[in-house]
Design a protein around this nucleic acid. Structure first.
Lengths: 144, 144
DNA sequence: TGGGACCATATGGGCGTCAATGGGAATGGC
DNA sequence: GCCATTCCCATTGACGCCCATATGGTCCCA
């Protein structure tokens, strides 16, 4: 089973580091991912984290349009300019930078959320609310 | 990873110099780029910086359109008339000239923005706004 | 079945290194 | 000679690397 699943909340220490859940680290090493590509989600106040293949997927989208177009320029601004490469330290922790804090509202704790081929960083409260809202939306349109 | 990615904001000192982020400098040296070519972005108030190949790419773009068109004329004016060559000093800093300040609105700080094969200089606030606007435009679509 | 050894994960913090920054001195153009 | 750029060196503050401790759970064995 090599997918990012479930969620966990960990504390940020005095230096601004947080441990990536062991389960997620296992998936990373299983997939041979050493360099993490992080990007702000387009919909939720969350930062997506995955391997270079995550970036590749977005770049293929850019490549599909005229490289000098306004649309390509905008996409590159988000994907390249808004993306960040990160590495875990020896203990499997990552730095929670201002880049992450500002966009997610994270301050003292991080909720790691599995998304199959990548995972996300959420402010715990925001995650619970978004999840509750998603559940609402589904149960109202599809009872059962 | 041999691409210009992510963004970082650095201060301009009293002499008008600013440090290019170490990550970007690493990409430059890896690509053997010593002379930097700078030109104005066609869409955003930003200055693009790259190796001589950046100039080549734009010239090919001009060549691909009607040489007598308004578009070709305008591009040539920006690329050939507005382009500038620069070098980094021993510490990896570059001079923020009036050419850069006037076009970008940069005054005390510079945001370096990765664009995969080149990088850009932005006024920090302008970058955040442009990125937020671009995200708005894309919030409805997601990659497959 | 209860206690305890053992283990893995999460967390805390010391310390060295390097990047970012500041400023003096030398250089060169006008 | 004056101003602007370039070269060189000093400072400092952040980050990476390392080791120590806490915490909770599991397994083994009496």
């Amino acid at each position: 089973m090599s997918r990012f699943l479930s969620n966990a909340t960990n504390r940020i220490d005095a230096k601004g580091r947080v441990s990536v859940p062991a389960g997620f680290r296992a998936v990373l090493s299983q997939r041979g991912i050493q360099e993490l590509y992080c990007l702000q989600d387009f919909i939720f106040p969350a930062v997506s984290v995955g391997g270079p293949d995550l970036l590749d997927r977005y770049e293929r989208q850019i490549a599909s349009v005229d490289p000098f177009s306004v649309e390509a320029n905008r996409m590159s601004l988000l994907i390249h300019g808004g993306g960040v490469f990160m590495r875990l330290d020896a203990e499997g922790r990552l730095m929670v930078t201002d880049f992450i804090r500002d966009f997610t509202g994270i301050s003292t704790e991080v909720t790691f959320v599995g998304r199959s081929d990548h995972f996300q960083l959420w402010q715990p409260q925001a995650f619970h609310e978004a999840q509750a809202a998603a559940r609402e939306g589904r149960s109202s349109s599809r009872p059962g």
